[in-house]
């Protein structure tokens, strides 16, 4: 059984995202440990990209801060390798196709296998383009995570059928970033996935408060939060770790409340 499947077994998962190297890799490393200790079930590690077209302003700026600080894919691999020694939860890299392509997909994914990375999310790789990366991922035992969106409609069946690890359900139109309200019927999206395949569904985009997390967790198997954490990195810089720890704990508790209510 994969580490990703374990993260969802018998519980609702809380999945924080962090941009590696924002403000520096030392802080990211501490923050990931803190999140794992505070109850995170899986961590999305963002490898920064110069032009992240699926991100709103908060994560765009996080990417630029990290790159300005001199972060590279190789330095992130080294940090992840160190983290793997002490942190047992699954790691999923979230980055853009060009970061993997330019490194050489085979070389990139071999490194992932070597250092114990479990999954990969590429927001600019839709179903139609996934084979180019999927084959290499499979050969290296890394799960390529599929995304579905409120606009996916009749595409959900075909995407779910070939999905692995978990399905990333995009809660709203537009780019990443906190939203005051989420109007999409996430429950319906999740049910449609499950008709096709018994696979965990995690909801992301726009979620920042414990109330939203609890609400979303009622209709899904997990909740993904990115911008709210990157905001803490921006606000507190190198002192962000305790704030991220507390935030993770409160979000994890909210997600758990949804599991017990059910």
């Amino acid at each position: 059984m994969s580490r990703i499947a374990d993260a969802f077994r018998g519980k609702k998962a809380f999945i924080p995202f962090i941009t590696c190297g924002d403000p520096d890799l030392e802080t990211t490393e501490k923050a990931v440990k803190a999140m794992a200790e505070a109850g995170a079930d899986l961590v999305e590690l963002g490898i920064p990209f110069s032009d992240p077209t699926a991100e709103g302003p908060v994560i765009q700026e996080g990417n630029l801060r990290a790159l300005q600080g001199g972060v590279t894919t190789d330095k992130i691999f080294a940090m992840t390798e160190r983290l793997r020694e002490t942190v047992p939860i699954p790691f999923v890299y979230m980055t853009y196709a060009n970061v993997v392509f330019s490194y050489g997909a085979k070389r990139f994914l071999s490194r992932c296998r070597q250092i114990g990375v479990d999954g990969l999310i590429l927001p600019d790789i839709p179903f139609e383009e996934k084979d180019e990366f999927r084959e290499v991922c499979n050969a290296c035992g890394v799960q390529l995570i599929s995304m579905i969106a409120p606009t996916s409609e009749e595409r959900i069946g075909m995407i779910a059928k070939e999905a692995e690890g978990f399905v990333y359900c995009v809660s709203s139109l537009g780019v990443t970033g906190t939203r005051s309200r989420i109007t999409t019927d996430v429950g319906a999206m999740v049910r449609r996935v499950k008709q096709e395949k018994d696979i965990p569904c995690a909801v992301g985009f726009g979620i920042s408060t414990p109330e939203q997390a609890e609400e979303m967790a009622k209709s899904a198997d997990g909740v993904i939060v990115g911008s709210a954490i990157v905001k803490l990195c921006k606000q507190w810089g190198r002192d962000c770790v305790p704030y991220i720890r507390d935030y993770t704990a409160s979000m994890k508790a909210a997600v758990q409340r949804a599991s017990t209510e059910k």
Binding site: T53, P126, T151, S152, E153, R155, V170, L173
Partner: peptide, 20 residues
Amino acid sequence: SKGRFGIHGGQYVPETLMNA
């Protein structure tokens, strides 16, 4: 995928845009 000129082209967009 669709729209190839040799190895180039394709449709590298987020799922949200695919139906568009």
